[in-house]
Design a protein around this nucleic acid. Structure first.
Length: 531
RNA sequence: GCGUUCGUAGCUCAGCUGGAUAGAGCACUGGUUUGCGGUACCAGCGGUCAGGGGUUCGAAUCCCUUCGGGCGCACCA
């Protein structure tokens, strides 16, 4: 819709024009302050320019009116244009708001270490990534969702050790001394029991079998992670294991040429020449690779797979890491501008106004699965998708357990369910609704129809700006328009029933499509949960 | 200290490719259609958009600066 209007303006003026939705509905559907910018060039008053432009649109069929007001140009789309678009959408519901981009994108997100279950911080990145993924898919991008599994290095050794310590204390009833760093949490019990069954208790006391235990355990942890993600409707296309990448090590190092050098018995990359604070070690004196080493091979592999664009979602605490990875990509001979790193910020939780208690059994982190148990996956997704991902967020769980308009996910679902209920009570035939005209609906209905048809613009905008919160914001406001319309206008049993129901079908389509892009299924009925 | 990011209503947050009177929910006050789910709707209250300067016809939005908070500054991940 907006694209169409933009295109018309571009044609007429020979330049890109800023189009906005006027705050005040009485100004029409779209508006542009273009006359102000033109005023200087043309040495004429904005009012005059706007006036002339308005007149020049007189006979276009897309617009019911084009008016100039105080230098602004206000457009009102014609009923015919809106009606035609809406009818098309209802006939092709699965194509609604779809796009035809076909850029090949690799999106890497979550990538939490397989050393423990996902916590609330991971959840935010997971939801953000998956929402972007859904939006991109819908827009036609050829996008791949990838999880990078850090299954090599210290943290894996630590996992083996932690299970041994846990088992020796809790299963073998030995008294053990814990080192400074080790993992804790309820999941260790599950792992220890599983290991006992599989290997026998000997695995817990034999230090040389720590690695074997760890390798088994990290796969188990991945299973836990994948199942938590699945509970949230998040699925990955590919998993890449760090441990499988090192075969390529020599070749990749050679690729970086003179940008790798040896000093003090270690291997460094000269990332400082690319704006990093200092050069970084990639191989330690004892020959063990650093974390960065894995990322270098991984990113080399990514670029060799040949995507047009790369997106990584990282926790914001890793933002200092960006320059060195960019440097490595450049050294490998690729364009680091193709890599876009998006950050997902910290989350702090409240429950009834009090800081959410981190349970000891969970290891003093808030588990993602616990939050799903408390408020459900839909609410979890909605919260995280609703806020800009790169700003810190604090929210109260209690708000999402309520069943009224203060709970946005509930509010939107209710709007959808209301429409479905009405359709089931319709006194006219289905065909009458499908064939009804959407013209002469009146001002209010017209605006509601327009609102419902805005989804395509929102989807496109939300993805290209990487600001997924635009989608839930839009759905909230569409739901509000629907509830208000419902209150103002009687539908069933009136003369206009068929056409009004058709209008509601468009709203329902928009809500349902929007929700599904957030990984949430629209409800046809609201059922009260009994406590 | 350096880098980065944020500072919008009492609270949680939108708005930030610069544009017409600064928005929503919560909280607080009051109201609502014989009409289809009141699980909804409407109204009131509440803001020097952290402070200061600059660019512009126009700044919450862009630039500079001060203050305040987060995060980072490993051969940890």
């Amino acid at each position: 819709m907006k694209q169409r209007v933009s295109a018309l303006l571009r044609e007429k003026l020979g330049r890109e024009v800023v189009l906005e939705k006027p705050r005040d509905r009485s100004f029409g559907h779209f508006a542009t302050p273009i006359a102000f910018s033109l005023a200087k060039e043309l040495k004429k008053s904005p009012m005059l320019i706007a006036e002339e432009l308005a007149n020049s649109f007189h006979d276009s069929e897309e617009f019911a009116s084009v008016e100039s007001v105080k230098g602004y140009l206000n457009f009102r789309l014609s009923e015919g244009f809106l009606a035609e678009y809406a009818s098309w959408a209802l006939k092709n519901p699965s194509d609604f708001a779809k796009g035809e981009k076909n850029q090949k994108i690799l999106l890497e997100f979550v990538s939490a270490n397989p050393t423990g279950p996902l916590h609330i911080g991971h959840a935010r990145g997971a939801v953000y990534g998956d929402t972007l993924y859904r939006l991109a898919k819908h827009l036609g991008y050829d996008i791949t969702a990838e999880y990078y599994v850090n299954d090599a290095g210290n943290q894996i050794d630590l996992l083996g050790l932690s299970i041994q310590l846990y088992a020796r204390e809790n299963i073998l009833k030995e008294s053990v001394e814990y080192p400074e760093a080790y993992y804790r949490g309820e999941y260790l019990e599950e792992l220890a029991n599983g290991a006992q069954e599989k290997f026998g208790v000997e695995i817990f006391t034999n230090e040389s079998r720590q690695k074997e235990l760890a390798m088994w355990a990290k796969d188990k942890v991945m299973e836990i992670i994948v199942s938590t993600l699945a509970d949230t409707n998040i699925h990955f296309d590919t998993f890449v294991n760090e441990s499988g990448l090192y075969d390529d090590w020599d070749r990749v190092m050679k690729k970086m040429g003179a940008n790798v050098y040896e000093k003090e018995g270690k291997l460094w990359i000269s990332s400082q020449t690319k704006g990093d604070d200092h050069d970084r070690v990639v191989v330690r004196e004892d020959g063990r690779p650093t974390y960065l080493a894995g990322d270098i091979v991984y990113h080399n592999q990514k670029f060799e797979r040949g995507y047009e664009h790369y997106i990584n979602i990282w926790g914001a605490d890793h933002h200092g890491y960006i320059p060195r990875v960019n440097a490595a990509i450049d050294f490998l001979g690729y364009d680091s501008n193709k890599l876009e790193v998006l950050l997902s910020q910290m989350v702090s939780l409240l429950k009834d106004g009090e800081p959410y208690k981190m349970s000891k059994r969970a290891g003093n982190v808030i588990l993602m699965s616990d939050i799903i148990d408390e408020i459900g996956a839909d609410a979890l997704r909605f919260i995280f998708a609703s806020k800009k991902s790169d700003t810190a967020l604090e929210f109260d769980l209690a708000e999402f357990k309520k069943e009224d308009s203060s709970n946005p996910i509930f509010y939107i679902q209710y709007a959808h369910a209301r429409i479905k209920t009405m359709l089931s009570k319709a006194s006219v035939a289905k065909d009458d609704i499908t064939n009804a005209s959407l013209k002469n609906l009146g001002e209010n209905a017209d605006m509601l129809l327009f609102d419902a048809l805005l989804l395509p613009e929102v989807v496109e905008d939300a993805f290209t700006s990487r600001q997924v919160q635009k989608l839930p914001e839009y759905l909230k406001s569409l739901a509000a328009s629907l509830h208000k319309f419902y209150y103002d206008v009687k539908i069933i049993g009136t003369e206009d029933e068929a056409k009004l129901l058709k209008l509601l079908c468009v709203v329902a389509l928009s809500l349902k499509t929007g929700l599904s892009l957030m990984g949430i299924a629209a409800k046809d009925k609201m059922t009260k949960e009994e406590e």
